[in-house]
């Protein structure tokens, strides 16, 4: 018997993936002292983390317990 993930779980996966990617970008930029590193951190890392966090918050309020 297979279990299909709920919408909430799918959103959490996507949100978590986005945040994790943003954190990896942040980790990479910490090894580099250059203006471009700061911009990557803010623009790329910040955007990924921001999107992930927003999606997570949305998944909290949207609920979405129905099976996908």
């Amino acid at each position: 018997m297979t279990t299909t993930a709920t919408k909430l779980e799918k959103r959490l996966r996507v949100a978590g993936s986005l945040v994790a990617l943003g954190l990896l970008v942040e980790l990479t930029t910490l090894h580099w002292s250059h203006p471009t590193a700061f911009l990557f951190f803010l623009l790329l890392g910040g955007t990924l983390m921001g999107l992930g966090i927003l999606l997570y918050l949305y998944s909290l309020v949207a609920g979405g317990e129905s099976k996908a």
């Binding site: 959490l12 949100a15 978590g16 945040v19 943003g22 954190l23 942040e26 930029t29 910490l30 002292s33 250059h34 203006p35 590193a37 700061f38 951190f41 803010l42 890392g45 910040g46 983390m49 992930g52 966090i53 997570y56 918050l57």
Partner: peptide, 28 residues
Amino acid sequence: ILILPIVSGGFGVSEHLQRSKTTEFCLS
């Protein structure tokens, strides 16, 4: 997904701001 990324983001910004004051940063 919320607390730790925000904390790390804040510390990351602080770290990058400190680095931006360094001679190494300017001469990079």
